[in-house]
């Protein structure tokens, strides 16, 4: 059997992390192609529906990228995102998601390398964790 390749969905804020991901490209920071980016204006605009839907539809990990505290272009969106993720994790724990499949990370526009490293590490971690348990229920 081929090695398990985790699928990561990343919701990135327009100003910081998305731009940081662009910078990773400009500077050719290599990372595995397991991540798919969904571009939003702010980490505070990541709805729990998106994250839950991603997990239910088989994402092995979800990355939410926002500006560092104090740097949010919309003042406080990142703090709101942080609460939302905390609540989500509380729910997911009950569902048996004890591992960290949802990662909130502050990555600035100048941290291309950090973005690449974050994805690389996340892929490694998810490989260790194994597939999203949701997929065991599939008949695929």
């Amino acid at each position: 059997m081929a090695e398990f390749e985790p699928r990561i969905v990343a919701f990135l804020c327009h100003w910081c992390t998305y731009t940081g991901a662009d910078l990773a490209g400009t500077t050719r920071q290599q990372y595995p192609p397991n991540v798919r980016v969904v571009h939003l204006m702010c980490s505070g605009a990541v709805d729990s529906i998106y994250v839950l839907k991603a997990l239910i539809d088989g994402a092995d990990g979800v990355l939410i990228g926002g500006c560092h505290p104090g740097d949010c272009h919309y003042q406080t969106g990142n703090y709101k995102a942080r609460r939302r993720v905390a609540i989500l994790k509380g729910i997911l724990q009950q569902m048996g998601y004890t591992e960290d499949r949802v990662l909130l990370k502050w990555i600035s526009a100048s941290e291309g390398k950090l973005f690449a490293d974050t994805v690389t590490k996340m892929v490694d971690d998810l490989k260790k964790m194994g597939p999203n348990p949701m997929k065991q229920l599939w008949n695929a």
């Binding site: 969905v9 204006m41 709805d47 529906i49 998106y50 539809d57 919309y74």
Partner: peptide, 30 residues
């Protein structure tokens, strides 16, 4: 910024060209 969109529970609050259904369609696509 869209934070009001997320505060709203039933999608009464939306953001132009970042509507929830649009974002979810993008999610489904990726």
């Amino acid at each position: 910024c869209g934070s009001c969109v997320i505060a709203c529970r039933n999608a009464a609050s939306q953001q132009r060209n970042f509507e929830k259904d649009l974002n979810l369609a993008a999610l489904d696509a990726v």
